[in-house]
Write a protein that binds this DNA or RNA. Structure first.
Lengths: 298, 298
DNA sequence: CGTAAAAACGTTCAATTCGTTCATTTCGTT
DNA sequence: AACGAAATGAACGAATTGAACGTTTTTACG
């Protein structure tokens, strides 16, 4: 195990600034090696020794979690996706969490995280399950892990302003996929909306009730698995008829375009194949200026 | 999100002077780490533990990243339950989250939180739904809110030690209630187990595969809704037959005692009606001393 | 192999925290 | 009410930390 870590990694893993860490390295508190060019390289063992001697705890153990990038920050998208899939398959909460947080901290947007990380992972899990390569429990556990990571990400997003437009949504009847609708909530929250996901497998009647009671500016429907296209189409028609015409409805999912085609009345029913499209639609709908990921001045 | 806090931050968050806080740190009332330069650094969890032990309240919770207004001392359990139910009905995430943190900071154990707060709330929601007093979407949304609150609580619990015994579990086929199995995971994690919930609606075959692949010391089955008692009983019988006899199996839920009666072979199949019983069972199974919610001296 | 972006380098400097002392407040007891 | 003991909070110079900066090294990729 010859894992060499950069000062930045060690600093974040033990929760101090990079400046302090470099100073401690220079003072000899942490054993440090140097590259020929003069960059510091720190062994995992040296970090452990430091923590034991100083009686400090690891703030983010997952950063030192070994195998993934061999001590290097993952740059390539493919490698990150590969690592995430492995972690999900093995049920490694910490590892998956680390990948998520690292990607987000590294500057990846919520939309990118959803379209380029979560969605591919879900597809691969589904494929592997159908091919019999993984057990059902592994797929369930992976969804559980992803849920928790996304919830944690949700806590990092800024709270909505009191004047933020309201968005409500969920998945239609017969669709038990909770993660896509959660991703939609995250994207809208990141766009400054007051977004609430009602969960999965919702009868159209209760969605209409929610729309009438809360009067959202936007209602989304995340349709991943279509059990009965005819019933879905009929439900949507009645849903549109029983809700205020001022409320826009966005449906998401690959097949939703065909299923719901022709139901639109005057640009009320919109379609987004992925989260990037959803984001464009949502920012177009917002009356106030959309400010993404900006901390509100308090 | 900040992991390590300075004395000043903690002092303002709980509303005392910096001097007093530093004194408490030095006296060991609050678990404190030191930088090599001698500066004190305090974990959020240490602050929560301090508040629980000393029965103090948070003056400015936002400094710790907790919702504004959280950390108040709870006067009456009934009032708290009432307020939680109202918040869940209205879909008020923040309010529900705040109440949870309040109750936990006030010293309530995870078991009590589950048996006396979450379970009653779920029952009332179910009753209200059956009486037609609330919409389906309100019930779904409430479960969503509770899930997130419990996930957040999960993050506050101490991570399992490497030598912690392993526990795996979930809900049997036909049972979609995810919250009870999540509560079980929390209780076991709080008891020092390495607990992983696989989610809901799991075929017995895949649960057996998980048990064989991961060799847990304990497998739990959280049975809330029984669709087909005969199938459930048969499934459990084959599950017991196809898993190592050294692995204990704990079933939870009011009716599970009748459904599974007579299947036991030599005290392998245990039953817990509520989380308090589960906790007793789990602590009895642990070979090492179970230390609940105590800060680990490292 | 060469190029461009990303990360780490060393340095400076403002802000924070250190340990300590001391006045003030709070508490229990007489 | 008065008293002493204990706890609290403010203040000080010295020391540490963390953020910023322009420059250099490393890494990814065509």
């Amino acid at each position: 195990m010859q894992e060499l870590l950069s000062p930045k990694q060690v600093a974040t893993s033990i929760g101090v600034s990079e400046s302090s860490l470099k100073r401690w390295c220079d003072q000899g508190v942490i054993a440090t090696e140097r590259t020929p060019g003069g960059h510091r390289r720190i062994q995992v063992g040296a970090v452990i020794r430091f923590l034991r001697e100083q009686r400090r705890s690891l703030v983010r153990p997952e950063v030192l979690g070994l195998p993934v990038g061999a001590g290097q920050v993952i740059r390539s998208q493919d490698k990150a996706n590969e690592a995430l899939f492995d972690a999900l398959k093995a049920g490694n909460h910490e590892q998956a969490r680390r990948l998520f947080i690292d990607l987000y901290v590294a500057g990846m947007s919520v939309v990118q995280l959803g379209d380029q990380v979560v969605a591919p992972a879900l597809h691969r899990l589904g494929d592997s399950w159908q091919c019999g390569q993984i057990e059902v429990y592994q797929e369930h556990r992976a969804c559980e892990i992803l849920s928790r990571a996304l919830y944690e990400l949700r806590l990092m997003l800024p709270p909505p302003s009191p004047s933020a437009p309201i968005a409500i949504g969920g998945t239609p009847p017969g669709d038990d996929y909770r993660l896509p609708t959660l991703m939609v909530e995250l994207v809208l929250a990141d766009e400054g909306w007051n977004a609430v996901s009602l969960g999965s497998n919702l009868p159209f009647g209760t969605m209409a009730a929610a729309a009438v009671q809360h009067r959202p500016d936007l209602f989304w429907l995340s349709s991943t698995h279509v059990a009965d296209a005819t019933a879905l189409r009929a439900g949507m028609a009645s849903f549109l008829a029983s809700t205020p015409v001022s409320m826009k409805v966005v449906v998401g999912g690959q097949k939703s375009n065909q299923v719901f085609s022709g139901l639109d009345q005057g640009g009320r029913l919109l379609h987004g194949a992925d989260l990037a499209e959803l984001q464009r639609i949502a920012s177009g709908l917002r009356p106030t200026a959309a400010v993404s990921s900006q901390p509100a001045p308090d």
